[in-house]
Design a protein around this nucleic acid. Structure first.
Lengths: 192, 192
DNA sequence: TCGATTGTCTAGCGGTGCTAGGATTCGAGG
DNA sequence: CCTCGAATCCTAGCACCGCTAGACAATCGA
């Protein structure tokens, strides 16, 4: 019994190693550099070992995405309540979101740009993803405005943040007015 | 002289064929299916011919993006003035944008999701891209609000539309409330 | 008509994600 | 303690990718 348990522990540890290494490599050199060969070499196993843990590269991306979602939810929940007043809370929330995207571009890509084979906006959506959305909603609900469904409001707010995050990082928006855009977005969207 | 001109015409025609075929293939089966081999086969030339027109696959994507930007600018300029009043014009503008993204997903990806090697938000940004942004700005300037830079306002509005377009298409936002989200966005962002 | 230039193709390079099948290790039962 | 079966892991290879060198053929000017 104990032997089997030890093996399972080691197996789980190796799986975490794979995900952590993939994330590391992606943050260092981008997801294009995360090939099964390089990844296998870094964890000091052969390629097929990866496929005994994940169906393929897509699932590895998905695992990184879930890890990222958990962290983002925690970051949002930790940051928002530190500010006084609804508007300030929303500003902090938005800044935290954009900050997370900027500091963890590879993880953000895994979550929202790449195909990690995860279900979104459905019942079978993985809990971390639902929870990250919930974290946004908790702060945004109080500024949705009368007669506006908080969920729909959160979707719109989230989409706007996502657009700012991706277009800014891709160099499609000038980096200089980032703060001004954030303030403008909050001032217009949030009903205080 | 005339021989040389004919050759140049034929060469230009072939280049258009390449771009059109790449776009076709991408809309049919996604950009992943647009390989240099398949593309070459469709235009009935060998692979190296592609490289006598473009530096590589990236530049082909860029060419599709420019074509798309021209069309999008035209669509936006054609649609917006058909509505009465600033708010209605902005709604039509937004709907046209999202419609374009939905109807031409591959072209939209070439423009804003993939790396086509194009410069954005700079002086040397290709004219079609600048023009598409200008088309947005023309309608949005009148609802930017007092003291708000129309360019910055357009950036924010564009980012929001981009977020809605990408998240909706990736299945990360439920398709059902699309119209509601659009109305909410316009109502909040636009100052009428 | 001949030489040079232009155009195009065949073949191949190093890389990708993924997998079949053989070798090796390891725990369990005699 | 030893042997056997099962689980584990790796080597080698598949078909495909973007891209390019170099051979070949067609065309042009002299």
């Amino acid at each position: 019994m104990s032997v089997q348990e030890r093996k399972e522990r080691e197996r789980a540890a190796r799986e975490r190693l794979i995900v952590a290494t993939a994330r590391e490599l992606a943050e260092e050199q981008g997801w294009d550099a995360v090939t099964t060969r390089r990844l296998a070499e870094r964890i000091e196993y052969s390629q097929p070992v990866l496929y005994s843990h994940f169906r393929g590269k897509r699932e590895i991306i998905g695992a990184v995405a879930l890890e990222g979602a958990t962290e983002m939810a925690a970051a949002l929940r930790a940051a928002a309540p530190t500010a006084d007043g609804p508007r300030a809370r929303v500003v902090v929330l938005a800044r935290t979101y954009l900050d997370f995207a900027e500091r963890n571009p590879a993880v953000y890509d895994a979550m929202f740009q790449l195909d990690g084979g995860l279900a979104f906006a459905r019942e079978d959506t993985p809990a971390p993803l639902k929870d990250a959305f919930a974290a946004l909603l908790e702060t945004l609900a109080e500024v949705a405005g009368d007669g506006v469904h908080p969920g729909v409001f959160t979707e719109v707010f989230w989409a706007s943040l996502h657009g700012l995050a991706t277009l800014t990082r891709a160099g499609r928006l000038p980096a200089e007015y980032a703060e001004g855009r954030l303030e403008l977005l909050v001032d217009r969207l949030a009903v205080v």
